[in-house]
Write a protein that binds this DNA or RNA. Structure first.
Lengths: 229, 229
DNA sequence: CCAAAAGTGTTTCACTTACACCCATGA
DNA sequence: TCATGGGTGTAAGTGAAACACTTTTGG
């Protein structure tokens, strides 16, 4: 082999783009850096990969440590390795994106007390390193994937109304959807389980609550069904 | 920051899954390892990322050095980082996949004289490390992507017949397509440029040759066109 | 003249789209 | 009783799928 194990090694980090859904906006979770470089800048949560953990384990650990988010949907996005992307040293970062149920996750401040906050995608601060590029790619991936994989549910509470689900798609895809057609389509897929509960504390007729039926979805998928909005 | 730059660093490599298309088969390019571990085993071409090159540069360099392939379609696939994926040491590999025009690329043997060969996907040898997993993922990605991005053309010669194009999709998607419907659809996209040449040296009516019109495709894409087979 | 692949249209069916009103509830 | 969203069906249009024969060429 031409290059041996004694060659200079880069550092390897993981960074996470955490998406959450608000009443009317897609949000990203950022942390404020308290060390140079980019001190005071907002950045994606992330950190070094430890010797004995997998990349995904590293991402989940950093996410939990820095934001308190656990048990979230997590998927590898892309690996960024421009030689000069970190001004100090060669750092290759494996980026992940996560989808969290904002409503149920009350975020803990980072263990090391850094500032953590949600930002609307339309109103982002300047980000450290190439994190803006990473974020944009994650957003593109989400928009592309939400239409043909049932990952949108990860952004909603366990039980949700059809209107909430429709809003989710309208926000992520950034275009209005027809109410009747949307309901017809999503219900005809047979991947929603109607609960016997209804919305609480609304000043109008309460809507029925549904939940995503994972088992049913897996079964249908095995039989050749393809999710698509 | 909790972990510093002095933490143990993994090695980082790139590996390439190179696809080519035969008369009737999808093929992968493999090299025979001449060092331990997995000496004598077939493996994906790849190697260490040098300190001052990007990941994609590293992939292209290794590809050229080990197989002679240049100017190919190359796309990052996924990053594999199980702590024990290399028996000697922690090695994280950034996998790429490449699509090459087998007809026009005469492969050179590797610079370091290792054995290089094409294998049919249906008749693979045992592969080193987790390379089989990488290969399977690359194959899945290709199958998934070929339908909605015009990357299939990268596997054909510059000029090709509609039948060749149809065969390509039939092989990659592993199902028969209807000739008339296929032609209607692909021609109606307006992304093929009809040449004034025809197939040579065939013992039957010679078919018209077409080429993929990149400029036209980009223009249509900007206008909202979506490729889909 | 035979073998082999090139080339070509129409009908059917399924799915998508557009569209508007009444109902239930809480304030 | 009013404001607010919940819930529902039909018709028209568009795109996908099924399907078979004639033409061209070289051997």
């Amino acid at each position: 082999m031409k290059y041996t194990y004694t060659h200079p090694r880069p550092s390897v980090t993981v960074d996470c783009v955490v998406f959450g859904l608000d009443e009317d906006d897609l949000k990203v979770l950022l942390i404020e850096r308290d060390v140079e470089p980019f001190q005071g800048c907002w950045a994606l949560p992330g950190g070094f990969v430890l010797p004995d953990e997998s990349l995904e384990d590293a991402a989940r650990r950093e996410l939990a440590e820095e934001t308190g988010a656990r048990d979230v949907y997590l998927e590898q996005l892309y690996t960024f390795g421009r030689p000069d992307r970190d001004p100090r040293d060669r750092v290759i970062t494996v980026a992940y994106y996560a989808l969290v149920k904002m409503s149920s996750h009350t975020l803990q401040a980072a263990t090391d007390a850094r500032n953590v906050a949600w930002f609307s995608l339309n109103d982002l601060p300047t980000l450290a390193f190439d994190h803006d590029e990473i974020l944009q790619m994650a957003h593109q991936r989400l928009v592309g994937k939400v239409r043909y994989q049932p990952i949108g549910f990860e952004l909603l509470p366990e039980k949700f109304t059809l209107t909430q689900l429709q809003r989710l798609y309208e926000i992520v895809l950034d275009r209005p959807l027809d109410k009747r057609n949307f309901r017809k389509k999503i219900l005809s897929m047979n991947i929603l389980m109607e609960t016997d509960e209804i919305q609480q504390d609304v000043a109008h007729r309460a809507a029925r609550l549904y939940r995503f039926d994972h088992a049913r979805y897996r079964k249908l998928t095995r039989e050749g069904f393809n999710f698509e909005i």
